[in-house]
């Protein structure tokens, strides 16, 4: 039980340290949906591009350096990946953030708005999985 919690806890602390280092150096919130959209919409494309290159490289490096196995590819039809991606895109832009910007950085700033957003998307995620797995009975 405790062994399985070491990776989540250290991983979470790394995410927190990375967010705080970005705030301390460049004064930016590490909200991934905002960083990603800003890479296309601008302004300040330089740091956004560097951060996202680091994000992908950091994920790859972690597996090659620690030997932690790469997760199996997600199951499910491509149309579901497309629909899910579309909803995540519309929702994060309309709601001004995602798990990182609202959940990690916003709650760290004691933002009530971010707390409300986090409670809402967590609840929506739980309800969605309940409906797909236990009401409709499909398991992606």
């Amino acid at each position: 039980m405790l062994d399985s919690l070491i990776d989540p806890i250290i991983g979470g602390v790394l995410i927190g340290i990375a967010s705080m280092a970005l705030l301390a150096t460049l004064g930016r919130i590490a909200g991934i949906s905002g960083i990603f959209w800003g890479l296309f919409a601008g302004p300040d494309r330089d740091w956004r591009g560097l951060f996202l290159v680091g994000l992908v490289a950091g994920g790859g490096l972690l597996h090659s350096l620690t030997g932690k196995p790469i997760p199996d590819a997600a199951e499910g039809p491509l149309w579901l990946a497309a629909l899910a991606g579309l909803l995540v895109g519309v929702g994060t832009r309309m709601g001004s953030g995602c798990t990182s910007g609202h959940g990690v950085c916003g709650i760290g700033r004691l933002s009530v708005r971010s707390l409300a957003a986090t409670a809402t998307f967590m609840a929506a995620g739980v309800v969605t999985v309940f409906v797909t797995r236990h009401v409709i009975g499909v398991t992606p």
Binding site: L14, A57, G60, L62
Partner: peptide
């Protein structure tokens, strides 16, 4: 910070 963030996400699950 992107490297650290990505490593954290991959390690965490």
């Amino acid at each position: 910070t992107g490297l650290l963030f990505g490593a954290g996400l991959a390690l965490s699950g």
